[in-house]
């Protein structure tokens, strides 16, 4: 909407985020060479979560949006987490 203030993000920020994402991608490849056994999946998921956080916050402008946007995204993540937990009620106790 034209009557709302637009936040202008400097290019520098975007480049930093891009670099961070590239570095994280290489890290997630690198750690597959280390023998982590059961923690391999956990490691990959944690790195992916950090990348998701960066994309949502900067590229998708969550940082500069009204708080209700963040609440909605948080709610979605909570639903997702609940679905995962409930699924594991089957796998863990089977």
């Amino acid at each position: 909407m034209s009557n709302e203030k637009h936040h202008i993000v400097p290019y520098r920020t975007y480049i930093f985020v891009l670099l961070a994402l590239i570095v994280l991608t290489f890290i997630s490849i690198a750690i597959t060479h280390i023998e982590l056994a059961d923690y391999t999946v956990a490691g990959a998921l944690i790195l992916a979560s950090v990348k998701t956080f960066l994309v949502l916050t900067f590229f998708m402008h969550l940082k500069f949006d009204k708080p209700y946007m963040r609440i909605m995204v948080g709610f979605v993540l909570a639903v997702f987490l609940a679905v995962i937990i409930i699924t594991f009620l089957d796998y863990y106790y089977r």
Partner: peptide, 25 residues
Amino acid sequence: AFVGYFVWGHHMFTSGMSGTAQYTF
């Protein structure tokens, strides 16, 4: 809409799911 996300397992009661999952669903 909200609770509807968490009940899917009632389609799977006889498919060999764990007992815990069965009564939760």
